[in-house]
Design a binder for these strands. Structure first.
Lengths: 313, 313
DNA sequence: AGTCTTGCATAAGAAAAACTCATCCCTGGG
DNA sequence: CCCAGGGATGAGTTTTTCTTATGCAAGACT
């Protein structure tokens, strides 16, 4: 995955200027001059080809599109700050740091984690749900990782949805997934009912960024084509959420039909919170893997977790 | 909120180098020379005072702390890329973009949103859950926003947990919150039972980054002091999650005791998924507010949403 | 109204950061 | 043992970013 990123310093200046709604104040926050801010903003506007501020006399105002992207921008800088903070603080005061995709964490890991915590009460856990743990098939890091500094206390393991080729890492396959459409049982039996995929034409499709990532873009479109009704159902309309968890929640609230990953939603299906009205399942190559560098795989905390996780599959 | 950020270009180079585990390949991806990569990494290492790569002959390896921060780093860059993408694509293909804190979205907004969608089926929604919608009391932007380009189609509204001082914005108070301890009912009645705050000394405390933000740091510590048992219970131990939703999930799975915001968890309490064993509630100044710039407040999509949201309170 | 003040824009030059080139060094493969 | 591959290093160059100085327009003040 190659990032196509804008000039990062200009972005940081923009964020400060947007926060203060003043180039001057932003400048003083950043310990630079007002002129420097003005330059940076201008270059960013030229780079983007979009006006970010409207200059109204002696004050500046954000354009609506600039304002709308601020939360995401803040989130981005916040993650970066957290990332470096994490490096600085080293041991992290935890024995085991688990990084996993949000849906996996909420629907699969959390219901089981209490059991692990009971068995290994001494292991201090840290669970980080990150939407970036989906990879195209293999990590881009093809080399054997060895010679890590073993004095460091914290051990990081990751759970990836990917193809399983992680050379240099110990990767244990947990389970494969398949994409299926889910809805509230009442909705499926309602009017119009959901009996076959073509019925989706009369229903609201719920989209989310996470599923786009798993499917490699246009998740619903692909699923519909897979079901043979790509032509008959418009995949573009419908509300869009930032996370699959929200889509599932929306589906259970009868807002529409969402895409979900089995077996993660099996408990929702069993409890009748959701139902899967169609047999059609799209099976991506990907599966969930527990991934960690070989060199830390035999630390007590890591191997205990690994052993436990595999016993849960 | 002032960000303390490292040299951003160096971070980007580091990410590429970590991905390839090769300075040479990273260099070619970034269209610069291997020497440039080497310099950047070195300067970042000096800035952080931490070794990021271990040089082992002709190959480089990540140190464990460097590797552990990668997911967060990727998440950061990804958000930045998404943010600028959003500016570029302008209208966003949606009529209404709602940005709200994750717990609010999952526990309050989603259960009600189906109703809104039914009433206003024409309004194309986009819901973005962002953990950065908590502010210290007021937005830092004190100016009246006017003269936005009204031709832009998408309207962005935000839901903030804050003090309600948003000059230039139309801010409608939704409801106040209070922090309370929650646990699984079985856990509370179990052995040792949870009868008064001091009993927490014998239980696992669940921490999360979101609650830290709300409380302004050391959430449990503050809550315990508020309950008068700051001395008797160790607030530092226990697993740590990246989101309050995960803490609540962990609590309901009997992993320990979490901090929660009322009234967001009221439905969990009503359904007996969770219980609030103590009367002690800590009431931060903050409340949830619907916030949007004055100038877009009267657009049809925005005013419909606003009216509906207020009717739900 | 006229004047002052405040804040952004702009141009030119200065400073700093980032990059390249040339070269060295080490390691592992043949 | 020698060679090739890949990273390190230092000097010098290019590019970016910043500052200083100044201009300009709008709101505040008298």
């Amino acid at each position: 995955m190659i990032y196509r990123l804008p000039p990062l310093n200009a972005l940081r200046v923009f964020e400060a200027a947007a926060r203060h709604l003043s180039f001057k104040d932003a400048a003083s926050e950043l310990s630079i001059t007002q002129a420097a801010v003005s330059h940076q903003i201008k270059s960013l506007e030229e780079y983007l080809g979009v006006e970010l501020f409207r200059r109204a006399g002696r004050r500046v105002q954000l354009t609506e599109s600039a304002r709308a992207c601020l939360p995401r921008l803040r989130e981005g800088f916040d993650s970066l700050a957290a990332a470096v903070e994490m490096i600085r603080e080293r041991a992290e005061e935890a024995d085991l740091l688990i990084t996993a995709p949000p849906v996996f964490t909420a629907r699969w890991l959390m219901p089981r984690l209490a059991d692990f915590a009971r068995r290994e009460p001494k292991i201090e856990l840290r669970v980080f749900a990150s939407s970036k743990m989906v990879d195209a098939g293999a990590l881009d890091s093809p080399t054997l990782v060895s010679g890590l500094d073993l004095r460091e206390d914290a051990s990081g393991v990751e759970i990836h949805l990917g193809g399983g080729h992680y050379p240099g890492y110990r990767a244990d396959r947990l389970f494969g997934v398949s994409m299926t459409a889910v809805a509230s049982p009442e909705l499926a039996k309602g009017d119009p009912p959901l009996r076959e995929p073509a019925d989706l034409a009369h229903h609201v499709l719920l989209h989310d960024d996470a599923m786009e990532l798993v499917a490699g873009g246009n998740a619903w479109q692909r699923w519909l084509e897979n079901a043979g009704v790509g032509e008959r159902v418009d995949a573009s309309r419908g509300p869009r959420f930032s996370s699959n968890i929200l889509s599932l929640e929306a589906a259970s609230q009868k807002l529409g039909v969402a895409l979900a990953l089995r077996p993660l939603v099996d408990s929702d299906l069993a409890s009748n919170r959701l139902c899967a009205p169609f047999k059609t399942e799209m099976k991506p190559q990907a599966a969930y893997y527990l991934v960690c560098p070989e060199v830390i795989a035999d630390r007590p905390a890591v191997s205990a977790f690994r052993k436990w996780l595999l016993s849960q599959v």
